[in-house]
């Protein structure tokens, strides 16, 4: 049963009552919220996700609620709760849906230690996965969004869930988070891009989300194999350039970008090493999406890159 199969009224009833179950990648969450913005966010972005009517085990019980006190009349705020625990300070009310997405990232990154969790986007074409780690400002999200709009299957825009034993990547497709200028760039890039409302003045600037394709959501249970790793670097006015990257510095950056390398220890380090050894690693400097995209296409095309 899909979230879309619920009437708007039932959905609101669940969100404010016993919780709305949503399956997001390998995780089941139970979401509680009385905040109208969040109901709209879920209706828009999560309609195609699985839900259930039967009692089950949930990985995360998540609640977003108004902060109480007199303050709510002057400067309304929203709390993110994992079960009854508040890991963050409350945020302004209008940031509720962004907080939900960040909060869920945090839940996964601090819990799902059956995976090596790398801060990177991962997309797939023709059964071949491309991992794109990226520091803020690298243009990772913009490139990821553009690829998703050109028929790539989105596995995640934020986190690679890599199985240390099989080296397969488990998808956790979610709304792609776009920041600041990226929002306009992606609107211009595709007239059909479905982008939600923007939250302004967050810790990360203005944030809006791009809806993943139906295929990406439908194939959320299908794992993928890494075929190449690309470290993107957006550089205004630069020529587009793909260069091979040294394995040692790639490993160092993967370790730095992994959320749980300290917890997985040796197992994590070895799986990062075998990831690096198992596929070619590149740096991609770019300023124009239309120049970067064909390069990404060629990476997964037959015969171009030996796996």
């Amino acid at each position: 049963m899909k979230v879309a199969d619920l009437s708007q009224r039932d959905m609101a009833g669940l969100l404010t009552g016993k919780g709305l179950p949503i399956q997001i990648g390998p995780f089941w969450i139970n979401l509680h919220s009385t905040i109208p913005d969040l109901l709209r966010h879920v209706t828009f972005f999560y309609a195609g996700y699985e839900t259930t009517e039967s009692a089950r085990f949930f990985d995360f019980h998540i609640t977003l609620k108004n902060a109480g006190g007199l303050r709510r009349w002057v400067k309304p705020q929203v709390h993110f709760l994992l079960d009854e625990y508040a890991p963050f300070k409350p945020l302004p009310y209008i940031h509720a849906f962004a907080m939900f997405e960040w909060g869920l990232n945090w839940c996964i990154a601090t819990t799902a230690h059956r995976y090596l969790i790398i801060h990177a986007a991962v997309l797939e074409k023709a059964g071949r996965g491309v991992i794109m780690p990226g520091v803020p400002g690298s243009g990772k999200s913009t490139l990821c969004a553009a690829m998703a709009l050109r028929g790539w299957r989105l596995l995640s825009d934020e986190m690679v869930l890599l199985d240390p034993a099989t080296r397969e990547i488990t998808p956790v497709p979610r709304p792609v988070s776009l920041k600041n200028e990226s929002i306009g760039i992606i609107r211009d890039f595709s007239a059909t891009a479905e982008i939600g409302p923007a939250a302004e003045d967050t810790a990360k600037g203005t944030v809006a989300h791009l809806k993943p394709s139906e295929t990406s959501i439908r194939l959320a249970r299908a794992t993928s194999r890494p075929h190449a790793i690309v470290f993107p670097k957006y550089q205004a006015d630069s020529r587009t350039r793909l260069t091979e990257k040294a394995k040692n510095s790639a490993l160092l950056e993967i370790q730095e970008n992994a959320f749980n390398t300290h917890i997985l220890g040796k197992v994590g380090f070895e799986s990062a090493t075998s990831l690096i050894n198992g596929c070619p690693v590149f740096s991609l400097e770019y300023s124009q999406l239309e120049e970067a995209l064909p390069i990404m296409e060629r990476l997964v095309a037959d015969s171009e890159v030996p796996a």
Partner: peptide, 21 residues
Amino acid sequence: SIWPDEEEAVLFHQGSGDTLM
């Protein structure tokens, strides 16, 4: 982790949790 064609080695130390080149 060491590559024959690369000069610098990568070390991960489990106790400190640090990765170094």
